[in-house]
Simulated assay, not measured.
Amino acid sequence: MIAFVVATVFLLLFGVGVLRDRRRFGNAVYLGLAVTFLGIGLLAGIEDAPPGVAETVMVLLLLVVALGPLVLAGLLCANGVKMVRKEGRRPANLLSLLAGLGILGVMGLAASAVVTRSVVLALIVGTTLLVLGYVSFLFACFVGYAFLYGRMRVRRDADFVVVLGSGLIGGSRVSPLLASRLDRGRQVYELLAARRGPDRPAPVLVTSGGQGPDERLPESHAMADYLVERGFPADAVVREDRSRTTEENLLFSRELMERDRPGSACVVVTNNFHAFRAALMARRAGVDGQVVGSPTAAYFWPSATIREFVAVFLQYKVVNLGICLTLIALGVVAGLAR
């Protein structure tokens, strides 16, 4: 019963957090805690379930605990190999492969501790599992809330649609990834334009991206050209061509919006795996904007999602690293106490 009460409290905190600002990582944590305590409450009450149900649930849980990490590691390794084949061996493309190998490494270490009955290995494994448990919980919160955030309705009061840039192919051509953002940005623009009354000016689409060292023109110019060549009205596009990072995309686009229509809201468009982190960054940059995502190839998701989570984890590094160090200290103390 207590678990259900705690779950309700965290669910209420989640609801209040969403109403205050959807773009808060705390919302993800509240939701994760609510689901966790709800699960604990359900497990605690399983003894009252009809005959056979409790046994079935326990068997399924044991299978998940025993086989889940192995299956997950295999899927991550397979995805990592596919990423390397399709996207090259850049460090960012190796994340799912490294995660899969890491899980297998921890499982191997745990097996060695059991076989050798080594106290030192057991201490290392126990401490590692404590830290991994915390990180895994945050990762699950991140993925779950990012999924929900990506399915929220597009706001109706926006005057601007800001499409975030990414690298150009050959230094001048829009990549499929960027084309996906631009096509989604156009859809959002047309949706906002259709909702406006005759007394309100048409929305404006901002292409945001500067010129990288290996590019022959600013990304924003190539993005605007892509849209105009496909029939988008040229006078509805504003080019922000100074930014080099997502933070600068948001800050410099905010300057343009404040200059033309002070106090206006916007919808920011990026790829779906990047949407929630971009929303967190928009909040920090003072941009009054919702972030929506465009489709991305399925094989790209695992590595991209891990990369986004790592960036968010390090964004709150003082708290997260502090908790990880505390867990390590607790693991060491518990091991020495034995």
Rank of each mutant, 00 (worst) to 15 (best):
N320M: 12
P218Y: 03
F142V: 01
L62T: 12
V135C: 11
P233D: 07
Y226D: 02
D260H: 09
A73N: 01
F273G: 03
N272M: 06
E87C: 09
V71S: 07
P203N: 04
S175K: 06
L130R: 15
R85M: 10
S136E: 05
G108T: 08
T326N: 08
I124M: 11
P213M: 08
V57A: 05
E258T: 07
L98G: 02
L148A: 11
A66C: 11
M1D: 13
V5C: 05
A304H: 03
S96F: 02
G41E: 10
M257S: 05
L251G: 00
M223Y: 12
V188W: 04
S118A: 08
S96T: 15
L98K: 12
L192G: 02
P91Q: 07
F142G: 01
L330M: 13
I306E: 15
L76M: 14
P218A: 03
T207M: 03
L164Y: 11
C266S: 14
L178G: 14
A298Q: 15
G88A: 11
A113L: 09
P213I: 10
E308R: 00
T128R: 02
G185Y: 06
R24D: 03
A44L: 15
F139V: 08
C324G: 01
L101C: 12
D260C: 01
V319W: 14
A54I: 04
S220I: 10
M257C: 04
Y299I: 05
Y149S: 00
G171N: 08
S243L: 01
A202P: 04
G210F: 04
V206W: 00
L123S: 14
L94Q: 15
V204R: 15
I103P: 00
A73W: 06
D159R: 12
E247I: 03
L33S: 05
V59I: 15
P201Y: 06
G88Q: 10
L132F: 14
L164N: 00
V65E: 13
V120P: 01
S136R: 04
V310K: 03
V18Y: 05
